[in-house]
Amino acid sequence: MTGCLSVAWRPVLGRVSGETFVPPRVFAADDGDATACGSVGDEGDAFYCAASLGIYFDWEMFAAVDDGDRLDTEIDLMDMVAHEYGHHMQLLSGIDERYELRYDDTTGEAQLRLTRRMELQASCFAAAFLGANRRSLGLTGDRLEHLMSTIEVGDDPESGPADHGSAESNRYWGQAAFKSGSPRSCNTWSAPVERVK
């Protein structure tokens, strides 16, 4: 999956920034394993760590599933890797640096809004990649239906901060990017506030 993502994103990065392309490293880790960005599990089931240029995920969550859930788990893993790879592209393109500068100058809801813009863009980048490669990834029928329901997952206000976007916002960005198959659909930074809730 990451090899395919690298083939897709390398020319895009060259066109938009001229920066040197470096693929991320992928770590299938155990819950509690230490990384340069915190422990696996503390940051969620998966996360991107800029300090190590790495995508970390709790492998047991994806490996220990019943055969009946295998299809759903495969699609969840595909979407997760594509989302975290989106964060890698934000880092390589300079988006992450601009985010960090703006984040440090804000507080409270303004910081959450910036974080939602960042997370929604990473999800949008994932959907654009998956949409552009839907045939080769076999995203039809039940597989496509599960992906569409995964794209629509938003923040649960009862379990933590509203930092990844509502179901409505994720649906808006994800469906548009999947349909277009282009990261041009992912400019969350100039979108009005109602699109990044």
Rank of each mutant, 00 (worst) to 15 (best):
M1H: 08
C4H: 11
C4W: 04
V7R: 14
P11Y: 07
G14C: 01
V16K: 02
S17K: 05
S17E: 02
S17A: 15
E19Y: 02
E19P: 03
T20Y: 00
P24C: 12
V26R: 00
F27S: 12
F27C: 03
D31P: 01
D33G: 00
C37E: 09
S39Y: 10
D42G: 11
D42Y: 13
D42N: 12
D42E: 15
G44R: 01
F47Q: 03
A50H: 11
G54C: 07
I55W: 00
I55M: 04
Y56T: 02
A64K: 09
G68V: 08
D69W: 08
D69G: 07
D69F: 09
R70I: 08
D72M: 11
E74S: 09
L77N: 03
M78F: 05
H83D: 00
H83G: 06
E84N: 04
G86V: 02
G86N: 06
H87G: 08
Q90T: 01
L91W: 05
L91A: 12
L92R: 07
G94A: 11
I95T: 14
E97H: 11
G108M: 10
E109G: 02
E109W: 10
A110S: 14
Q111A: 13
R113L: 15
R117M: 13
L120H: 06
Q121H: 05
A122P: 03
A122G: 10
A127N: 11
A127T: 10
N133Q: 14
N133L: 07
R134S: 14
R134Y: 05
R134L: 02
R135E: 15
S136F: 06
G141S: 09
R143Y: 04
L144E: 13
H146T: 08
L147E: 04
M148Q: 15
M148I: 06
T150H: 08
T150G: 00
E152R: 12
D155N: 12
D155S: 06
D156G: 07
P157C: 09
A162T: 10
D163L: 13
D163R: 11
D163V: 15
D163P: 02
G165Q: 06
G165N: 09
S166R: 09
E168L: 11
S169T: 07
R171S: 15
R171K: 15
Y172F: 15
G174C: 04
G174F: 12
K179R: 13
S180D: 15
S182F: 04
R184S: 14
C186S: 05
T188L: 08
S190Q: 13
V193H: 06
R195I: 01
R195V: 05
K197V: 11
